[in-house]
Design a protein around this nucleic acid. Structure first.
Lengths: 191, 191
DNA sequence: CCCAATATTCACGTTTTTCTGAAACTACGG
DNA sequence: CCGTAGTTTCAGAAAAACGTGAATATTGGG
């Protein structure tokens, strides 16, 4: 038996799976994002885009799939765009926007972490001065600052290694499997 | 001119700085933590402990310094202890608890990140199956999972390097400066 | 075994956040 | 330059989170 959810794999081996199950996944993943601190709507919207074949949806589509008002989509998008997880594009010849989940989402979002860390470092060093550089508390704060400085460096190194790693994975996959079936549907990105 | 905040450095080069300025720092750093997603009370409590010379405070002390009810301290502590940022100890011969900020707080808290990442990976892989492993969406989800797997490895590597880095910093400091003045006040930890 | 000192839990009032419907705005097509 | 499809903003209702005071539980000392 293959998957076993009632209706067999009729002829859509690549697109129209059970929308029920997909919606389930969307909610489940969104919940994880919420735990990690992202708002509810941004999480659901983002998750929905991730699960979308093309990675692109209009406001109306999101509104329908998630059962939320256009206003909620707009609000959630403001956040997602601001933090660089999603790009807004306008399809020429139409007046509605399309929202695209960016390709290297995680990668990019980690980069943005720097600013936060730098702010922390500044505050901690001021704290060290306030509390007295020679005191135990001062040392504690100083060590925290040092840790975050270290982390910034490490983050950069890591992202470089990910680029490599990812490139290798890509090559392996292309070599080991046939992959040139259809068109290059997943054009790399555009922003 | 040295620091210039009115009263000169009278004779407490190592402990009783302006409580005003310290409280300021506590609030400022707490605000950063809030931005990063931590609750308000946990942030303030944690920040307060970080700025405390001994790194240890009782519930009553926290209650007074932060102007919050004992209930708020208790609630905040439940969180801080759960995520491993603070340890609760009971001083023998007394019936009140003392809360100690752990030494390698950041280090430890990063370690705990693993669980979160593993959960994400699981969810993403289920999503890949749901959506179809061969589809573009499937690949997108799979690549996200791969990124997080990569991150877990990197995290471990990084923590190892931090241990080294930190040990080196410690040695440098001990070598370049006199450090053996008083007692070993900052006994390494106890949990 | 009871008393007193702390800590925790719970129900409640308050503040914040969240989401919606409706109005205002924008930009493309004609 | 107008009309309209679509998006954003805004005020307000609904829901959630927060913090407190009071009650309850726990624990060490006598």
């Amino acid at each position: 038996m293959i998957s076993g959810k009632g209706r067999a794999v009729e002829r859509e081996p690549e697109q129209g799976q059970d929308p029920r199950a997909v919606a389930d996944f969307v909610e489940r993943f969104a919940a994880e994002l919420v735990v990690a601190g992202m708002g509810r709507m941004p999480s659901r919207i983002f998750s929905c885009l991730m699960a979308e074949e093309s990675g692109v949806l209009t406001s109306a589509e999101l509104s329908e799939r998630l059962q939320i008002s256009p206003a909620a989509v707009s609000g959630g998008m403001r956040y997602l765009i601001q933090v660089g997880l999603v790009a807004k594009e306008r399809e020429p010849g139409s007046r509605r926007d399309r929202y695209r989940v960016l390709n290297d989402v995680w990668f990019e979002s980690l980069t943005r972490r720097d600013e936060l860390l730098l702010r922390w470092i500044r505050v901690l060093k001021e704290g060290e001065a306030t509390v007295g550089a020679g005191t135990a508390a001062g040392k504690r704060l100083e060590e925290s600052a040092a840790f975050f400085e270290f982390m910034i460096d490490e983050l950069h190194g890591m992202l470089g290694r990910w680029r490599e790693h990812r490139a290798m994975r890509g090559r392996e996959e292309a070599g080991g499997q046939e992959e040139a079936g259809g068109q290059p549907e997943a054009r790399r990105q555009q922003a």
